[in-house]
């Protein structure tokens, strides 16, 4: 708790800096693509968001494994705090992919293998969030969610493989290569900075959310303690 309080402001500042510089490079410095023109700038949001969608799921799975094996209460909280952020990044990836696809492919959605896999990932996130919140007892929800997250880890490669395979079978008539054969350094830098900025942002908000969850736990304990002696009942009622 104290460590997070010390790290948090630095995380926030670093996030603001990298995202600021990254945005500047992405919008003003990076050259337009010779094929895709200015639309290529969507990549600087889309690709880091896709990375984050997977990275956050990795964190969620790791936290779930720790929660199940060592029963560390903090791991449960970390997983639950991360999931909505992961869902947010996945949604961002999907929508920006669609916005990029419309000018490039001529439709808002193609059943491209990558887009499809990300869509499935989005549903896995939603399932996790729904499951965690579906129980009256928070610990049961956390435990069930952790198991689901690990089941998802086993399944994601299988789903990815199936979707890739399915996609090569039903190859759409004209698919443009994303990004072109080589990525120039002037594009790589903003991409890299945006990715780091997103990661730092995730860390910052994750820390805030974990702290919130810890405080919520404390509140619960305090309220339980207050409820015990009879004469305090009215006081606890008014406080809640």
């Amino acid at each position: 708790m104290r460590l997070s309080a010390a790290v948090l402001p630095w995380c926030a500042i670093a996030t603001a800096l990298t995202l600021g510089v990254g945005l500047y490079l992405a919008l003003f410095v990076a050259p337009p693509d010779y094929q895709q023109g200015e639309a290529v700038r969507i990549m600087f949001i889309h690709v880091p968001a896709a990375w984050m969608a997977m990275f956050v799921y990795g964190n969620l799975a790791l936290a779930s494994a720790v929660a199940l094996i060592w029963r560390h209460p903090l791991a449960d909280l970390a997983g639950q705090a991360a999931a909505p952020l992961g869902a947010g990044f996945t949604l961002l990836c999907l929508v920006t992919g669609s916005l990029w696809g419309q000018p490039m492919w001529g439709t808002w959605w193609v059943w491209d293998a990558r887009l499809t896999s990300v869509l499935v990932l989005f549903f896995l996130y939603l399932g996790y969030i729904a499951l965690v919140n579906a129980f009256d007892e928070p610990t049961r929800g956390a435990r069930a969610g952790a198991i689901l997250a690990l089941v998802g880890v086993v399944n994601i490669p299988i789903i990815k493989f199936s979707v890739d395979w399915w996609n090569t079978l039903h190859q759409p008539a004209s698919i443009m290569r994303m990004g072109g054969p080589t990525i120039d350094a002037s594009m790589l830098w903003p991409l890299f900075l945006m990715a780091i900025g997103f990661t730092l942002y995730f860390l910052t908000v994750l820390l805030i959310r974990i702290r919130t969850a810890i405080i919520a736990r404390k509140l619960q304990v305090l309220r339980m303690a207050e409820l015990e002696p009879d004469e305090d009942f009215a006081g606890a009622r008014s406080a809640s």
């Binding site: 499935v120 896995l124 399932g127 499951l131 689901l148 399944n155 789903i159 493989f161 199936s162």
Partner: peptide
Amino acid sequence: SLLILPLYIP
């Protein structure tokens, strides 16, 4: 159904 249908895709 929300949990299981995505896993049925393969």
